[in-house]
Amino acid sequence: MHEEVLERIRERRWKPGDAIPREDELAREFGCARGTVNRALRALAEAGILDRRRRAGTRVALHPGGKATLDIPIIRREVEARGQTYSYALKIREDAVPPSAIREAMGLRRDDPTQRVLSVHSADGRPLAIEDRWINLAIVPMAAKADFTRISANEWLVTHASYTHGDIAFSAQAASDAEAALLHIDPCVPVFVIDRTTWYKADAVTTVRLTYAPGYRIHTRL
């Protein structure tokens, strides 16, 4: 029961914000006691996957993610939550063959359809983060038609693409000349870097390198 509900959410059969069937309907569908359904839904609500409200029913959380794990933030919302003005600039968008290291990380062949999206997110007019992303168009074909001049790939993928798990690494590195130019800082200044690859079962959905300007803090809950 628990895993079937998760599978429907991950596959976007139940999308963020959707109301799910009532407990008695699910009990009939799965052939189990209503108490079993209640326990499964309560556990998913405690994990942040579902939003349960008395008299309003149960819905898929708008941004489902385990409370004991690091979820994928939408940078625009992070900036606005701090009371700052958000802006975004698309720098590069191209269908291309990823470098060998990217192909290896994503498990791709040279002829697999991929798209690179490079953009800069800003807060109060100052560059905050560089988003350098590769998208596997075989898994997310709709991304080829997404308007990334109006919405970042970060936000579009969080709200449109299914994923089951991911790999993430954090590091402090010296800004390259290209990164320094985009962030308006001096070359070799230490910057915070997140390298993240998300997967849908055995297939990589996207890999991204997020390079943050000095002063950025990451926050999560346990």
Results as ranks from 00 to 15, higher is better:
201 K>Q: 11
184 H>V: 07
88 Y>K: 00
99 P>F: 00
113 P>D: 06
179 E>P: 02
166 G>D: 10
163 Y>W: 14
52 R>H: 13
55 R>G: 02
181 A>N: 05
56 A>F: 09
204 A>T: 02
128 L>M: 01
60 V>K: 05
160 H>D: 00
144 A>K: 06
139 I>T: 12
173 Q>K: 12
136 N>I: 03
110 R>D: 09
31 G>Q: 05
166 G>N: 09
110 R>W: 10
9 I>E: 07
4 E>C: 07
122 S>N: 00
55 R>D: 10
191 V>T: 06
172 A>E: 11
66 G>W: 13
40 A>E: 13
19 A>E: 15
28 R>H: 11
166 G>V: 04
24 D>Q: 14
205 V>W: 03
191 V>C: 08
51 D>R: 06
85 T>K: 09
64 P>F: 09
78 E>D: 12
194 I>L: 11
16 P>W: 02
91 K>I: 12
59 R>H: 13
128 L>D: 01
97 V>R: 08
143 A>V: 06
168 I>S: 13
74 I>G: 01
213 A>K: 07
58 T>K: 04
32 C>V: 15
144 A>F: 10
116 R>Y: 03
174 A>D: 08
6 L>V: 09
85 T>R: 13
187 P>D: 08
58 T>V: 14
104 E>H: 11
153 A>T: 12
127 P>V: 00
218 I>F: 13
156 W>P: 04
2 H>I: 15
75 I>Y: 10
198 T>D: 04
82 R>G: 09
112 D>L: 00
208 V>I: 11
115 Q>Y: 00
115 Q>F: 00
14 W>F: 13
196 R>Y: 00
206 T>H: 00
169 A>Y: 08
206 T>L: 00
160 H>Y: 09
38 N>D: 06
122 S>Y: 04
19 A>D: 15
211 T>G: 04
128 L>W: 02
95 D>N: 14
125 G>A: 08
45 A>H: 12
156 W>C: 07
42 R>L: 12
209 R>L: 03
207 T>G: 06
164 T>P: 11
37 V>E: 05
196 R>F: 01
157 L>E: 00
62 L>M: 11
116 R>K: 13
90 L>F: 10
171 S>C: 05
189 V>D: 09
122 S>T: 01
190 P>D: 07
80 E>N: 07
122 S>C: 13
220 T>V: 08
189 V>R: 15
